[in-house]
């Protein structure tokens, strides 16, 4: 049942022409592949990977946030949810279905962009090497990150307007990306109270820094499998936590 909702969410995204961003991505990659050889010698591979992965991350992020914050809100606001919830469908199933649907959209989108990146890479290097595998790991990490961002957007979507939800999600994303810096700032100031606060925040906030492997992929550095496992577990734990909160809020609210 959850799956039925997920597939419909995916269909909605596709019909809303969400995947148009792929065209921009393709153009970007083509331009980069053609131009990079002319402006920088010797680092084409580096530039393509850096640019490609950064674009995949940003495009995905924009999509996750902007669709995510409307997932539940739009259905409440337009009252499409009334008839849907008259099916034998629990509210939490609806939530998870919506979540899975957007995740599916993001996964397909990311896969297609990765394909584009691979083509551009092949165009400049004429070959693939073993160390290019870390690009796939980096893409996987980006997906984990997007999954976490989507969960947060969904949570906010359960009780606030898309505008505010965007602000909240983006704020948490930035805080979670820079939490390492916030923490080191706390350590450098040598004030024990501030240090304790920043440390607490560091472990409380979702840590998006964990999923940053773009540099490693660009330099062809190998990413240990254990880190892949740990990051997967971390994302799973945090996503579950956020969805639990979303379910608790959404299952108990009156639809207007």
């Amino acid at each position: 049942m959850t799956w039925v909702v997920a597939l419909n969410t995916f269909r909605e995204a596709v019909r809303d022409r969400v995947l148009y961003n792929l065209i921009f991505f393709a153009l970007l990659m083509i331009a980069a592949a053609v131009l990079v050889g002319q402006i920088s010698i010797g680092i084409e591979h580096l530039v393509i990977v850096n640019l490609g992965l950064t674009a995949i991350s940003i495009f995905g992020l924009v999509m996750a946030i902007f669709i995510g914050v409307g997932l539940v809100y739009k259905e409440i606001d337009k009252r499409t949810l009334y008839a849907l919830l008259a099916r034998p469908l629990r509210r939490r199933q609806f939530l998870v279905g919506k979540y899975a649907g957007l995740l599916l959209t993001l996964a397909v989108n990311t896969a297609l962009m990765t394909l584009g990146l691979a083509v551009a890479l092949f165009y400049v290097s004429r070959t693939f090497v073993r160390s290019d595998l870390s690009i796939l790991v980096a893409v996987y990490f980006i997906l984990l990150k997007l999954a976490l961002v989507t969960a947060l957007a969904l949570l906010f979507s359960c009780f606030s307007t898309p505008m505010l939800s965007t602000v909240f999600t983006l704020g948490l994303y930035l805080a979670g990306t820079f939490s390492t810096d916030i923490r080191s700032f706390g350590e450098v100031t040598e004030s024990p109270a501030l240090g304790a606060v920043t440390k607490f925040l560091y472990y409380l906030l979702p840590n998006f820094n964990n999923f940053n492997a773009i540099a490693a992929a660009a330099y062809g550095r190998q990413i240990p499998l254990i880190l892949v496992a740990q990051n997967t577990a971390y994302a799973a734990i945090y996503i579950t936590l956020v969805l639990l909160a979303a379910a608790a809020i959404f299952s108990n609210r009156d639809l207007k």
């Binding site: 964990n210 492997a213 240990p224 880190l227 740990q230 990051n231």
Partner: peptide, 13 residues
């Protein structure tokens, strides 16, 4: 888990 990731992620990043 985060503490373990911290220890490892630094070498990668």
């Amino acid at each position: 888990l985060q503490r373990r990731i911290d220890a490892r992620v630094r070498t990668v990043q």
